[in-house]
Design a protein around this nucleic acid. Sequence first.
DNA 1: ACCTGAACACCGTTCAAGT
DNA 2: ACCTGAACACCGTTCAAGT
Lengths: 232, 232
Amino acid sequence: MAGKASGARGKRPQRPGAPRLSAEAQSGEPALSLERIVAAAVELLDAEGVDGLTMRKLADRVGAGAMSLYWHVDNKEAVFDLALDSVLEYREPPQAGESQDWRGEVLHMLEDWRASMLRHPWSAALLPRRALGPNILLRLELLGRTLSRAGVADADLNVALWSLWNHVMGATITRASFERSDDDLAAAQQRLTGLSERYPTIERSRLLLDNDWDGTFRDGLDFLLDGLAPKR
Amino acid sequence: MAGKASGARGKRPQRPGAPRLSAEAQSGEPALSLERIVAAAVELLDAEGVDGLTMRKLADRVGAGAMSLYWHVDNKEAVFDLALDSVLEYREPPQAGESQDWRGEVLHMLEDWRASMLRHPWSAALLPRRALGPNILLRLELLGRTLSRAGVADADLNVALWSLWNHVMGATITRASFERSDDDLAAAQQRLTGLSERYPTIERSRLLLDNDWDGTFRDGLDFLLDGLAPKR
DNA sequence: ACCTGAACACCGTTCAAGT
DNA sequence: ACCTGAACACCGTTCAAGT
């Protein structure tokens, strides 16, 4: 029911000897391509959410016949995989790895990560169902390198990476689920407020009612980094 | 597209004056009820996963005509909400709140939480799309009380609760997505291993390859609690 | 090599109707 | 009050066929 890494270009065969003039070279319109499909899928997901992505609507948006997608893509699952990973692409800043402010670097990486996902709220809902794509793995790799340079022992790297990843995931998912629409947010707050007699501590903590998500995310991260920092 | 708190008993009207003999009182078979529907939904989700839950299959399993569910339940979203919250029920241990081992209490609560979700792997995939049900809120409330008794200031309670919640969510989701089936797990590990040249740090950390999920979860929690513990 | 429409086996949900 | 089947407007995907 899940798992395959790429899932893309299922039957894409080896290129022919000479790539001779394609439709793309003749008209301005680029031919149907995996890239265009993925880009359109992201647009569609941004506009209509996870349930709004339909193979037929996607084909429509890309100006192709309903079933043309299946030559480029195995199935709908693959579309989700590709859209998710494409949204998590990471461009490493040029001076990375040179400063000795490892904590600042980690903070930057994780905030960029979180921002990428919040820009596409459907990504949080999708992630738990999909495999780790190459862009996610790259982010983890770079994060691990920074921690390693900061002096985290190899034996602690697993826990460290995993805890930070969990923090980003959890924070993004929680926020995304409170942000689907203003109506929902208002309703949720209303609900939480109304429940104060039954949940006095939650009420007192103003859990999720203060809207300073960024601050809370960063504060939690600070706690984690305090614990993770190599003891000297 | 989401958000309503209960979503249940949409049109359940006020009870009639006298509950007179129902089918349930006459035969041994209990009549169709919200409870039976939710229980069957959990069974179905356990057996076939999120995509396996179909209103028709659910009705079948409960021995009812295909469309009878809609009298008890608003729609399929409500079924998901109810199934998710029912799986997260928490029975507080009797001596709770009396020991002064707050750290042990927090650990117990969070491990129980995580275990409940891992027992029903679909719950992790579902959670980011659903609202906070009463059982989740209760768990957060009890967690908050314990932290409060331990000396965490009200001003820090929000970050503390949220960070711990994020840790449980993230850890559960990551693990569930690696556990869907043994095939997938093997495939994922195969993939990670094969990628060692491109991701040397990940390889070195043996990220997600060591199968000591419980230990890693607990270690990460320890880091967090170290940071969260009231400074004295 | 690439794209297509018709067709199949499903969905969730509405509605008028039964008891 | 509670349950039902027929019907509607969709789905994802296969397949034989086009160029």
